[in-house]
């Protein structure tokens, strides 16, 4: 028995050292994939001190579907499009913001409906591990034990990817598709791509009240810090909305019943299918313009 244990430990020790070395490998600035935008968006957040910024947080529905440049010019203050990917989960994004926002800043949270289902609000292990590697291993402290368990199996893969990117040039270009406000703009002049099967975007998970409770917790925290905190709804194609109406109604009813300050109603953000680019949450140029104007109108009427 002792011999077996000794051999297992001798086998695992170099492996552990190897994994740690990988984990602490310098962050590659070479990641030009869509996800690489997290490096630039975090930089925008870190450089926005004392400017009464407006930060819009959520997944790709924000990256693709909001014109923060226009909003920034309109309000004459920094407006940051902190929309990355729904898979990341807004809990991680909001934890990241906790020590980086200041009194006078405002956060508008617009999660995808999926984030209210199951434990999606805590993100997927794959997206979180990628985000951790790209934003620095020190951000491990932002994870709760549940997220940590999700991340663990993917860490090696993401670290290896990071090492690869330190050596090879990344041939992806998506990261260059963002403007200086964090808006994804590369798709604006492209024709719509067909959304193949709408049914694909139906989650089997159920609404989780915990997601609203968690957002309320963040709202309280930011309120105490003097940071404004509002919540709104993501854009949704009409045909998919009809398919998921019941689920969305449960979600929006729970949001309405919460202590959160809300901008608009879920129905306001139901748009014709033709306004979406290639995915049910990604608006095209026209859709983005309509949605941005609607949000501006709702912010103005709220103030």
């Amino acid at each position: 028995m002792n011999r077996l244990l000794k051999n297992i430990l001798f086998f695992l020790f170099p492996l552990l050292i190897f994994l740690l070395l990988l984990l602490f490998f310098p962050i590659s600035k070479n990641d030009n994939s869509y996800f690489g935008c997290i490096i630039d968006k975090n930089k925008l957040i870190n450089n926005s001190h004392l400017k009464q910024s407006l930060i819009i947080v959520g997944g790709s529905n924000i990256a693709f579907g909001l014109d923060c440049k226009k909003m920034s010019l309109l309000y004459s203050k920094p407006v940051i499009n902190y929309g990355i990917q729904g898979g990341l989960g807004v809990v991680f994004q909001l934890e990241y913001l906790k020590n980086r926002v200041n009194k006078g800043d405002t956060i508008i949270l617009i999660p995808e409906y999926d984030q209210y289902l199951g434990d999606n609000i805590y993100g997927s292990g794959k997206a979180l591990s990628k985000a951790l590697i790209l934003s620095g291993v020190s951000n491990f402290s932002l994870l709760n034990p549940h997220q940590f368990r999700k991340v663990l199996p993917f860490l090696f893969n993401s670290s290896l990817e990071n090492v690869k990117l330190n050596i090879y040039k990344d041939l992806n270009l998506e990261r260059f598709g963002f403007n200086e406000f964090g808006d994804f703009i590369a798709h604006l002049d492209l024709p719509n791509r067909q959304i193949d099967v709408f049914d694909k975007y139906s989650s089997k998970l159920a609404f989780n009240r915990e997601s609203i409770r968690k957002i309320e917790e963040f709202s309280q925290y930011f309120k105490k810090k003097g940071v404004g905190f509002l919540i709104s709804y993501c854009p949704y194609p009409k045909s998919l909305y009809e398919l998921h109406q019941k689920k969305i109604q449960v979600i929006s009813l729970n949001i309405v019943k919460s202590n959160l300050k809300i901008l608009g109603r879920s129905q306001d953000y139901v748009f014709p299918d033709s306004l979406f680019f290639e995915y049910p949450l990604h608006l095209n140029k026209t859709g983005r313009e309509i949605r941005t104007n609607l949000l501006i109108k709702q912010i103005n009427s709220f103030n």
Binding site: F11, L15, L19, G125, K126, P153, F154, F156, N157, L160
Partner: peptide, 18 residues
């Protein structure tokens, strides 16, 4: 033999679907 074991572990960690 050990190298094969390491290779399998690395493949599991690097390419596994979790």
């Amino acid at each position: 033999r050990k190298s094969f074991y390491y290779l399998i572990v690395i493949l599991i960690l690097g390419m596994g679907s979790y």
